[in-house]
Design a protein around this nucleic acid. Structure first.
Lengths: 131, 131, 131, 131
DNA sequence: GTGGTCTAGACCACT
DNA sequence: GTGGTCTAGACCACG
């Protein structure tokens, strides 16, 4: 799986890693139970600090996306993904809200927003396994 | 205008301020040309430091949402809001994408996402009078 | 004489006034000995505070561009303009230098800069008396 | 790189810093991709507060002159400088105009002005090795 | 009274 | 150790 990182972004690298892996799972490029590279190998592959990868994996584990075994290494959680909790919906709304507000200010209408969301959804779900 | 701030949040206070004000403009609670409270009064109202408010205002000015006059103080930009640039659309997508990916992982389908967006859009645009 | 003011500019209004009047003199729209509007009338004409106009006039007087008589009011200095002092040249250089440096960074070459200066010079000296 | 600062000047310190760094880039004393001192070390070197340096760096980043990496710290933008936009030319003219007008008033002719500009240009571009 | 600047000191996030 | 954020208090420029 290719990791697209922007080292100059204001978004922390570990957050970008988390997002990339979640998107990998969402697009089924990463399947349930599938192993992920070890902290060390991923870190050296993408040229970032061990701690950075470690932090990303730890967060993903906490949120229920992956499992970290001492032996088997890191795998996408084979049982399944975390459910939609009330807490999760709140977070979604809290993040989505400023995006929508900004779009309205700049004159985007509801349809354009819905189309954007639909396009992104399509891009994620229809992306072929590309490596 | 009421400001909802979470001082414990990991989201910087000045960012929350920026978001609240943009949402205020989007919902037309703040009208074009309308004055905003002075740095000092807003700061004391919401119990944060003057510099924190100042940073929020400075950002909003840079992005074209407000104007800072030497005399009149701070007002919502009376001319209008910044347009939809390619750059803006990129930013929107970059922010929306992880939200969508996460939702997919947790089993939300496209319709549920679209409904959430539509609900948020409605909440913002229909809240003409809420205090 | 028309005053072009930008009330939203970060440049202080009194500075803009000073610049406009100096440009008026440079372009010979304002002749030596010619009267300028009183503080009060100019202030009300352009809709700014008395103190602002006063500050502009005071600065112009200090630098030798105008004279302020209790009776005759304010006039362009009839004797002539202040000379080119070493101090003045220093100030010119101090102001010009960052403009040139920035232009170089952005890829303007010397000829383009010279042309810009020449164009501005021409605009000022060739402007007709337009009211 | 040597920073020439005038703490008594009416020009804000952070502006002087910005100008010095831009001139450093223009004169190629600072090369593309080259690291700049950290906020803290520069601040202590020149004896100003860390926030003052930070403001200068933030401005330079916004204008596209430098990049701020989380790891590597601050570097001159390795890709290149911001282009000449219409907006930039306007700003250049707005700044140059009062300088030219004042020079005309004091009796400098066009040639003297052009020579001054040429000299400054030469000083900046030919100062490859000055410390 | 307004925003702009600067200082000083603190804590945190990131790598 | 880096930059980012926040607080606090001071002075100044502007109108």
């Amino acid at each position: 799986m290719i990791m697209k990182l922007d080292l100059q972004s204001e978004v922390p690298i570990y957050t970008q890693l988390v997002n990339q892996i979640i998107e990998g799972i969402a697009s089924r490029k990463l399947k349930l139970g599938e192993p992920l590279p070890s902290v060390r190998s991923l870190a050296s592959d993408i040229g970032v600090n061990l701690h950075t990868v470690n932090k990303a994996y730890t967060l993903l584990k906490q949120e229920g996306y992956i499992q970290i075994h001492r032996q088997k290494g890191v795998v996408v959680d084979p049982v399944g993904m975390p459910p939609v909790t009330a807490e999760f919906l709140e977070k979604q709304e809290r993040e989505m809200r400023p995006i929508v507000a900004e779009a309205i200010c700049r004159g985007m209408n509801k349809e354009e927003l819905l189309q954007m969301l639909e396009r992104i959804h399509h891009e994620i779900t229809q992306s072929e396994r590309s490596e």
